[in-house]
Design a protein around this nucleic acid. Structure first.
Lengths: 188, 188
DNA sequence: TAATATACATGATGTTGATCATGTTTATGA
DNA sequence: TCATAAACATGATCAACATCATGTATATTA
């Protein structure tokens, strides 16, 4: 039951997409290789034709997830306002990989960590881009602090079993970042 | 081979401490009941005399970890400066439970989430305490935003396989928070 | 001190899940 | 068109683990 070249590429895409969603939803350990394959419309047997191990699947999935670049150049505040929403909070499977899996990354393979580190670098650069040429340093600091706040806020909000508290965290962190970004220039 | 009443209490303490360290170090799923018991100086068999299940151990451990209150009243900046350090970054097993396990909490039992939510509430209150009576709202916002930034920064730093980048994240987030806190009064 | 119940060690059990082995079908290249 | 090898389905294997069952020694208490 061989399959066409394009079908293979498509299958690989499906596997990685399914893995991306399942891992973000339920975590690396809780998701089964067989489950991923089923979600991709295949059976477990074929898996090792695509990846050497579950670890390799994890690393490849993370690389894929972190690669997707937002091409549009947005301001920090605009980005934060899209990030810190109820929709994003509800959509763990389709949302930010760091907010979904962050605390597990340190326990994964070197390849997985490398993918995330690369993504972190890119994200800091991107978020710092909007700034004037003369305060690059402040812009980078804003990018880092704001990105940390976004990630932390989403994790805290998702942790909470009280929706009101979760909303408060998102909203106040939004305001925190916005205020902060306005006063970028000239700080010690 | 019965054991004295105090020994039982001591054993329970040891189990919870071992669990707290192991979970933070390696995550909930990767840690084995037998491992926890061994680290507590016992064998796996006795476990179910203390807890009904691994899930119950997780919930109880988190409750315990989140209960520990810093009695000292510190400023936000002081707290952040203790939190965002290389030492804390290296000491995952003994450090902040949110930074170690945050993204896994949403996948745990209701009891576990409740414990974390309670801890989050307490933490926000504590960090907001230092403020003057007249800008409670701003103080609370600062507490939330800063706490989110701390948690996020620690997670990002631990994620990175590049020590320099990790240090930068810690340092810049420290500065980001400090800046913010200095100019609290009179905001929209 | 004797009787009892308890805490724990040792040793199952049953399931789950990663990974491998094999056979069948069919795209591909000659 | 044919031979070949790739993809994948089905069906092992093998180990890890949560949880349970049982026996034993000893703290407790009457």
């Amino acid at each position: 039951m061989r399959v066409s070249r394009e079908q293979v590429a498509e299958n690989r895409r499906q596997i990685l997409e399914a893995a991306g969603r399942l891992f973000r939803q339920r975590g690396f350990e809780a998701v089964t290789v067989a489950e991923v394959m089923k979600a991709a419309g295949l059976t477990h047997g074929g898996f090792y034709g695509y990846f050497a191990s579950k670890d390799e699947l994890i690393a490849t999935t993370l690389t894929e997830l972190m690669a997707a670049p937002d091409p549009e150049r947005v301001t920090l505040e605009a980005y934060a306002n899209r990030y810190l929403t109820s929709e994003h909070m509800a959509d763990c499977a389709g949302g930010c990989p760091v907010a979904a899996l962050g605390t597990d990354i340190g326990r994964q393979s070197p390849a997985a960590r490398a993918a995330m580190t690369e993504g972190l670098r890119r994200q800091i650069d991107r978020l710092g881009e909007g700034a004037a040429r003369d305060d690059r340093r402040a812009a980078r600091q804003n990018a880092i602090g704001s990105w940390a706040a976004m990630v932390g806020a989403m994790i805290l909000a998702r942790m909470s079993d009280d929706p009101a508290l979760a909303q408060e965290v998102l909203k106040e962190t939004r305001a925190f970042i916005e205020k902060r970004a306005k006063r970028t220039p000239g700080e010690s």
